[in-house]
């Protein structure tokens, strides 16, 4: 409230100082963007320049070649179906991993179960996805269950760690107060426990998703006959680097979009009550 009355004491000087600050800020932002653009130009240019000059064109196709290949692939109509297959797999596998991760995280509040699952979580975090991909591929062959199991095994631990951290830091005093004021179990969970756990869950989901999509593509390379990973394997076996780069880059951009834009927007919407509190 006091900030509203402050400018009226010395309006001209303050306005000019604000103007100056805004101007330097704008110049700063302009310069940053300029450098950023220069970075893009430099790296894309380097990539384009090296293809055909520093390295064989077949070994390192430039960005323009990748774009041209993407247009060709799009014209054949393979792209949407391969994307849909992989995204479905990621969706199902990640959902299962989320359920398992949250369950284990909740169970780990018990001391005995904490000891029980501790090594499972450590192994889940440190083991490379490649190992799960190979084991599930050799056991399940090209059945659907293989990739799903691999996703669950690589991803659940990240979610578990976040959930159990969240539960550990639950506001006990608030819960006690709610209890003593006779607030019901459902209402208590809805208004105290869930809002407190939400940020931890979101962190787990974001980390987990970034692992899950990579593992999915990896398992598809070994044991699938459809999806992005399969297309990548086919392209590498035929030594078609432009096609390979196009597949991986296209999917990479989609995954980054989901990870950085979609999940972030959902998170921001979910926490809109927080920003309104701040403002």
């Amino acid at each position: 409230m006091s900030t509203v009355t402050a400018p009226s004491t010395s309006p001209p000087r303050r306005a000019s100082a604000e103007d100056l600050a805004r101007k330097t800020e704008r110049a700063d932002r302009l310069r940053t963007w300029g450098w950023r653009l220069a970075g893009y130009l430099f790296f894309l240019g380097l990539w384009e320049f090296s293809s055909g000059r520093l390295m064989d064109e077949n070994l390192l196709p430039g960005p323009s070649a990748v774009f041209a290949t993407f247009a060709d692939l799009w014209a054949t109509g393979e792209v949407p179906s391969a994307f849909a297959t992989t995204l479905t797999r990621i969706g199902i596998g990640f959902f299962l991993a989320f359920v398992v991760g949250v369950l284990v995280g909740m169970l780990m509040q018990n001391r005995w179960l904490n000891g029980f699952f501790r090594d499972a979580v450590t192994i889940g975090i440190t083991t490379p996805g490649l190992i799960w991909a190979l084991i599930t591929a050799i056991i399940f062959g090209n059945r659907e269950a293989g990739p799903l199991l691999a996703i669950v095994l690589t991803t659940f631990a990240v979610i578990t760690v976040n959930v159990s951290e969240g539960i550990k830091s639950l506001p006990k005093d608030l819960i006690d107060m709610a209890k003593s004021f006779g607030v019901g179990v459902l209402k208590r969970n809805r208004h105290i426990v869930l809002p407190h756990l939400a940020p931890f869950l979101f962190t787990g989901v974001r980390f987990g998703f970034s692992i899950a999509w990579k593992v999915t593509v990896l398992t598809e390379v070994f044991s699938s006959s459809s999806g992005i990973g399969f297309e990548m394997r086919t392209a590498t076996q035929l030594f078609r680097l432009p096609e390979f780069l196009t597949w991986i880059l296209a999917f990479y951009i989609l995954a980054l979009f989901l990870e950085k834009v979609v999940l972030e927007v959902i998170e921001r919407r979910f926490f809109s009550w927080r920003t309104s509190l701040k403002a």
Binding site: D28, W35, R36, G39, S210, L218, G229, M232, A255, L256
Partner: peptide, 20 residues
């Protein structure tokens, strides 16, 4: 700051690339 702006997006891009 300028060098940071120059490289930042590319560092993030390389970071997010699957090692496959």
């Amino acid at each position: 700051k300028s060098v940071n702006a120059f490289f930042n997006d590319w560092v993030v891009a390389i970071l997010a690339m699957p090692n496959l």
